[in-house]
Simulated scan of single mutants.
Amino acid sequence: MSTDTGSTGSGPDSGDAPDVTAHTVAVLGGTGPQGRGLAGRFAAAGIPVVLGSREAARAASVAADVQASWGGSVTGAANADAARAADVVVVACPWDGHADLLRDLADQLAGKVVVDCVNPLGFDKQGPYALRVEEGSAAQQAAELLPGSTVTAAFHHLSAVLLEDTEVASLDTDVLVLGDDRAATDLVRALADAVPGLRGVYAGRLRNAGQVEALTANLIAVNRRYKAHAGVRVTDV
């Protein structure tokens, strides 16, 4: 779920940033608004993208639309084939299908960097609220289900509306990146930095992902009250 000036290597403590254009990125749940938006932004930055969906035909159709809008290389495939084709995999599926999807794809995701951006949220008459997750967070659930993968967490607080808007040249927000493997979090920060306006900021180990996911509920409340597409900016780094 999404809420509503960077260049490669511009993030804090970036050092020699990895070349993200050398990696193929799969977006599982890529036919939803957040998945489409991320795929388009990555493709426009020169990163090869594979959109994953439960139905290969739908993935191919959406991928063609995304490529027409953003350029670059965007293809579509069934989730398992998309996961198999990439070395970095972004999980952007709905929370209610999160566990089943990852459980089914554990073999295909082994050896890969997995970026979980799923926000476990509920909604009632009072608005959005964070759901309790037994493992502590969606990202920690992913780590339990994917013992052969390197799981990180990022891209939770981006507005799908802004992501998909080709008239918005710069997103001007920070991306909080969490994980237990330095090389993996550096790669994901570089992936964020590749998108104009985004800046990847290391925000702690994976055990801290719960409050980052939950913050999305607060941002949705901000956006509803102020009719905005608010994001997060970290100061003094």
Rank of each mutant, 00 (worst) to 15 (best):
Y129H: 12
R189Q: 08
S2Y: 02
C117W: 00
A85M: 02
A56F: 00
A217C: 10
V188T: 05
Q211V: 15
G200C: 13
T21L: 06
E167A: 15
L171W: 10
Q34L: 12
L198M: 14
V161A: 14
L105I: 12
G6K: 06
H229T: 15
T173M: 08
V27E: 06
V89D: 01
D174H: 15
G52A: 06
D16G: 03
S10F: 01
S2N: 13
L215P: 10
A183K: 05
V91I: 13
V74T: 10
L176K: 04
V62Q: 04
D174Q: 03
A59D: 05
K227V: 13
H229G: 03
G46R: 11
A43Q: 07
A228C: 06
G46M: 12
N218V: 15
G6S: 06
A217D: 08
R41S: 02
H98W: 04
P33F: 07
N218Y: 10
A63P: 09
G210D: 12
A63L: 03
R207L: 05
G72R: 12
A230N: 08
A192V: 11
V195K: 06
A59V: 09
P128W: 11
D96C: 00
A203V: 12
G97W: 07
P196E: 09
V50W: 11
Q211Y: 12
T150G: 10
T31Q: 08
G97F: 04
R103F: 00
D165E: 07
A139S: 13
R225Y: 08
L105D: 11
V66T: 11
R103S: 15
A184V: 04
A63W: 04
V91T: 03
T185G: 02
D186L: 06
G76C: 11
T5Q: 13
H98I: 05
R182I: 01
V88I: 13
V195W: 08
D236M: 05
Q140I: 00
L105V: 09
A77Q: 13
G52L: 08
G111K: 05
D165Q: 06
V90L: 13
A190Y: 04
E135G: 02
Q141H: 12
R233H: 09
L109A: 04
P147Y: 04
T166Y: 01
V27M: 01
V91H: 00
A44R: 14
D16M: 04
A217T: 06
H98F: 15
D193C: 06
R233L: 07
Q67F: 01
A192I: 09
R84P: 00
A203F: 09
S137H: 09
G197H: 14
D172F: 01
D81Q: 12
W95E: 00
D180V: 07
I220C: 03
A92T: 03
E144W: 10
A153P: 02
G197D: 13
S14N: 09
A59S: 04
D186I: 07
L131C: 02
G148V: 05
L176R: 01
E164S: 11
A110V: 01
R84T: 14
D16T: 15
P48T: 11
A17E: 02
H156M: 09
L176E: 02
L178A: 05
G97H: 13
S10N: 03
A139P: 11
V188G: 05
E167F: 00
T216Q: 10
T235R: 06
G40P: 07
L219A: 06
T5I: 12
D16F: 00
A17N: 09
L102I: 10
